[in-house]
Amino acid sequence: MVKVYRDFQYAKKFINKSTVAIGNFDGVHLGHLSLLKKAKKLASNSNTSFTILTFAPHPLKVLRPEFEPKSILRFRTKIEMLERAGVEIVLAQRFTKSFSKITAEKFVYDVLKNGLKAKNVVVGDDFKFGYKREGDVSYLVSKEFSEIFKVHIINEISGKYGRYSSSSIRGMISSGDMLKVKESLGYFYIVEGRVVSGEKLGRELGFPTANIHYNNNVIPEDGIYAGWVLHEKKQYMAAISTGIRPQFKGKKRFLEAYLINFNGNLYGKNIKVSLVKKIRDEKVFSDIEKMKLEMKHDCDKALNILNKYKI
């Protein structure tokens, strides 16, 4: 089981020597997986612990909160995915204003050398670190540190839609193109959370829904989607609405999933919703009966889509 630490001063008590891959790893997308594969092989060949160094919260939340990006994955799910990639140790360094003032040199000596006892360091070609991002890859590979660890640089990794990056994937999610998102993530975008009690409007219409809030997730474009709901290791086909429900003059944005052919009560339970493909935009109907008929058509379309796209 992966070990998770929150501070390098504490982690150093339990680490002997390590191969360290550094990054935020939000989404654990295909570009990340390529880097992780390289790091895992290095760790195995050098008999070192396969270690991730990331930062929580996101540095921008501390330094420039107005620019903090929404998360593709919840922290716990990110850890689960890193563990599936073979990671043994995660240092999710608690990022504070004090930590942000560590110089690039101190970062190398205090965090990498003495904290994680790094023998290999794996980074992307655009990696920056230290106070005001003063350190970069060229500094990391300088002779000054060559006796401490070897640096392995992963150059740009691109896919069908260009360079893999968490920021570009956030843009894809926001535009509602979930099939394109899957091409970059390697899996369908997941929204997860605890089912909360809503206004029960869906139940009154004959389509009871499981409602969850977005919290700090990237919010997809408003509309109706086909998707899968995972609950207690079982998968259910679903028609999913995300938006403000303009038919009822709603104001708060959240996600509602109607599990097709499901009988049960999910209130208070944790679910994961995988968004597969957008069916249509939200819209206002002239009367409720027309809305109910359209919702029935949405379910039929969702079934057709989900019979083609599994998770």
Rank of each mutant, 00 (worst) to 15 (best):
G162H: 04
L140I: 07
Y131T: 09
L116R: 11
F129K: 00
K117E: 01
G124Y: 05
V122R: 02
G115R: 12
K128I: 12
K119R: 14
V122A: 03
R163H: 01
R133P: 02
F129G: 02
F129P: 05
V137R: 03
M172G: 08
A118M: 01
V141S: 09
G124H: 05
S138F: 02
K113W: 08
F149W: 10
A104P: 05
F127K: 05
E134R: 13
I148D: 13
I148C: 09
S158T: 15
G159L: 07
K150I: 13
E147A: 10
V141Q: 04
L140C: 07
V151R: 08
S166V: 05
L140H: 07
I153H: 04
E147W: 03
V108G: 04
V137H: 07
K160Q: 13
D125K: 09
V151D: 02
N114D: 15
S165P: 06
N114K: 15
V122T: 07
N114F: 15
R133F: 00
E156F: 09
G171P: 01
I102P: 03
F129T: 00
I102G: 00
K119W: 09
K150T: 14
F149M: 13
K150W: 06
G162R: 01
S146T: 04
D125L: 01
G162N: 06
S138Q: 05
K106I: 04
F107G: 04
Y164W: 08
M172F: 15
K160G: 07
R163C: 00
E147R: 11
F145N: 10
I154V: 15
S167D: 08
V108M: 08
K150G: 15
